[in-house]
Amino acid sequence: MDYSFSPLGDHSIIIEIGQEISEEVQNQVRTISQLLEKKQPRWLLEIIPAFTTIAVFYTPTVASYATVEAELKELLQQPEEVAASETRTVEIPVCYGGEFGPDLEFVAEHNGLTPEEVIDIHTSGSYSVHMIGFAPGFPFIGGMSEKIAAPRRDSPRLRIPERTVGIAGKQTGVYPIETPGGWQLIGRTPIRLFRPDQEVPSLLRAGDKIIFKKITESEYYAWKEEDHAANH
């Protein structure tokens, strides 16, 4: 594989793995991220993997840009040292519609469907997490059916409660924390995607497969995180 390198300021370097989002590029991003975390070069501060790139933050007093680039080139010769990580499947229970999903009707009408059909399509999709970013634990999810795509709201809501499930264009996502935003809101999950009290604060990670599962309002209120942890 051909990688290109360029500086992102005086404390980081971006490794560009591909020009377009593809499964192969995503796998490379994950493999190289794991390799870097395993090798922990002496100058490494942290990494931010994205769709087609990995930003590597380093300490310039330990190594200059030229040194970091040269050492990265050498390191990337041996990606096979990292075993491909297992693909996890994470189930996200969602209570659709009602006060949790005030825009479910809009999404249905926009696509000439009934709300039930929107839920069926949303829960039968095959989704994967491309990257975590934008907000803590926020997954960029690929794989939503275009049949339930819907434009962003003209004027964004000032407060979208945490754990709300929404649709924006051809994307679906879950808000981990309360945020302003223009997404169409279709439901809410009882599980937390952002867990600042835990060592790995994000429930999801790049590469995960996701299943959305419909639950009732009473199941939503009865939900306990432990149940979810026991299932996975």
Binding site: S12, I14, A50, T53
Partner: peptide
């Protein structure tokens, strides 16, 4: 453009042409 990492002091330019300097509480990407 495909979203990617930003850093302390990155200057990005949205469609309105007015640059934004990203500081301590910037998003990660």
């Amino acid at each position: 453009l495909i979203s990617e990492a930003v850093a302390f002091g990155s200057i990005q330019v949205p469609a309105d042409g007015n640059p934004i300097v990203l500081l301590a509480d910037r998003q990660t990407t």
